[in-house]
Computed example of a mutant assay.
Amino acid sequence: MGKIYTTRWTMGRGIFYTMIGYVSGSVLYAKVFGKLFCQKDVTEDTIDGNPGTTNAFLNGGIWCGICTLLCDLLKGILPVYAYMHGLPGADIWITFVLAAPVAGHIFPVFHRFRGGKGIAVSFGVLLGLYPYMKPVLLLACCFLLFSFVIVITPNYHKTFATYLFATILVLFFGKNSYVSLGMILISALVLGKLMLCREEREEIKVKLL
């Protein structure tokens, strides 16, 4: 009887935080702070129409960009950290809790399921695994590698390479299979969004510095 209760409690808790993560991700802070700081939609008249940090900085100014970046990170960090708090280790539900804020940002319920690329929030959810930092460090290292060592341009191709290689590294070097599955889901969401994005895809260029 106790085992059944524990299983139901674990499932209920996992579903709750997955839903909280999705709703949290559905708040597009680039639009919120664009209206607050400059009374406009920062995605208008942009190439990709992306409600993310880059357009917040470019079209909303430095404070709009900083606030958007911080909140996009936090909406990923908080649900994951809250779910992990007090647990002896990650369970199967962390896979979905990790992916939920990214899914919410990409397919936001508050914006007719038309959202951003999920890059900042994906860093946020991985930071929420603290003190287990290996996945976010691998993602950051891949981003730096393809930005400053093996320089891949334009950003479409750099982002694709970053998430693909980071996922492979997490699968090989990650210590928790459920977190690795979460990383696979995150990358599938981000790369799927990239392929659906309306921005023009220029030819890939690779340069070794």
Rank of each mutant, 00 (worst) to 15 (best):
I106E: 03
K117F: 00
V102H: 06
Y81M: 13
I106P: 06
N59V: 14
C38H: 03
T43V: 09
G52A: 08
G65L: 11
L73H: 06
G60C: 07
I66A: 12
V42R: 09
F37G: 07
H111F: 09
L74H: 10
Y81F: 15
S122E: 04
D45S: 07
N59K: 15
I77T: 12
I94V: 13
S122R: 06
V121H: 00
L70I: 15
D48P: 06
L98N: 08
A103Y: 04
I92V: 12
N55D: 05
G89N: 03
W93G: 02
A82S: 10
G60I: 00
A56C: 15
V97W: 13
E44N: 11
I77V: 15
L36T: 05
D72N: 14
A120E: 15
V109H: 00
G49T: 09
S122D: 04
C67E: 08
Y81G: 05
T54L: 13
G49L: 14
G118K: 08
W63G: 01
I106M: 06
A90N: 03
T54A: 14
N55G: 12
N50W: 00
I94P: 05
F57Q: 08
K40V: 06
R112L: 02
T95A: 04
R114L: 11
F123T: 00
L36A: 14
G61D: 08
V121W: 03
F110W: 01
G76Q: 13
P51E: 12
L87H: 02
P101S: 12
L70W: 11
P88D: 06
A103F: 12
D45I: 03
T43N: 04
I94K: 04
G76I: 14
I94Q: 06
W93V: 01
P88I: 02
R114H: 10
V109N: 01
A56D: 11
F110P: 01
H111N: 07
V42M: 14
I92A: 04
A99K: 09
F96E: 01
G52H: 13
A56E: 13
A100K: 05
K40N: 11
G61W: 13
V42T: 14
D45H: 10
P101N: 11
P51C: 11
L69Y: 13
R112Y: 07
I66E: 07
I62A: 03
A100H: 08
T43R: 09
I62Q: 01
N55Q: 04
A100Y: 08
N59S: 10
T53F: 00
Q39P: 02
P79Q: 10
Y83I: 05
T54C: 07
A82D: 02
G124E: 12
A90Y: 05
I47N: 09
I119P: 06
Y83D: 00
N55L: 14
S122W: 00
D72K: 14
I47F: 03
G52I: 14
K40W: 12
A56T: 15
F113E: 00
R114Q: 13
I92L: 08
G86T: 02
G60P: 14
C67I: 12
